[in-house]
Design a protein around this nucleic acid. Sequence first.
DNA 1: TCTATATTTCGATATTTCTCGAATTATAGA
DNA 2: TCTATAATTCGAGAAATATCGAAATATAGA
Lengths: 113, 113
Amino acid sequence: MAESLQDWAVGALQALAHDTRLSVFRMLVQAGAKGLMAGEIAQKLAVPPSTMSHHLASLERAGLAASERESRVIRYRADYGGMRRLLAFLMEDCCQGDPLVCADILEIAACGR
Amino acid sequence: MAESLQDWAVGALQALAHDTRLSVFRMLVQAGAKGLMAGEIAQKLAVPPSTMSHHLASLERAGLAASERESRVIRYRADYGGMRRLLAFLMEDCCQGDPLVCADILEIAACGR
DNA sequence: TCTATATTTCGATATTTCTCGAATTATAGA
DNA sequence: TCTATAATTCGAGAAATATCGAAATATAGA
């Protein structure tokens, strides 16, 4: 317990700050609700299963992904709540509300459209 | 050269994935256009000058901060362009545009208001 | 129960990052 | 030019992370 939001955010950023994990996270974000199976992810990125397992566990511990067993397969999904918390934390009190400085950051939130 | 956007994003996330640097970045984001002086930052966070200098250099190399000398002082500012690029990269093709899944991420982009 | 498949956990090495005092560089003022 | 101040770069030991094969666990089907 006793973990501040800042501590959590550092953990989340640490999880994303790795080539393989960032690719995995983006794959999951783009996959949406149906997610992806662990083996599928490992194969697509050509990473050994045990290595990928560590990376997936990192993302899950960080609150950026969630897993669910489906018989022999484990399905991973992006945790959009965690993603939202992280982005919100980074943008908190952004540049004192000066639209000249950071207003265009709004546009990126069009969420893929 | 030959650095992909993904490689850049990993570097930016790495820069943010540290307690001190994340605090610095948020201070800069909140400070807006007037920025903060290197010494001021080091003092506020109670970190030795040489250590802080490394952290500031990391943020600058990552494209998340910019520095400018003003006589004997060096002023650091958040690089909102880098911030925007990073957030955009994370949200690209977010959950295939399904508003049920990630629409509320829009709200956080109110940029502190 | 026996076998095959999917995934994770263990363990040990290799690599990278963090930290901060000491030395260095840059600027301003007397 | 001499001194004081602000900040950076150097250097090296300490600490944290990454990697992946081997072993272990969980599930399904024969």
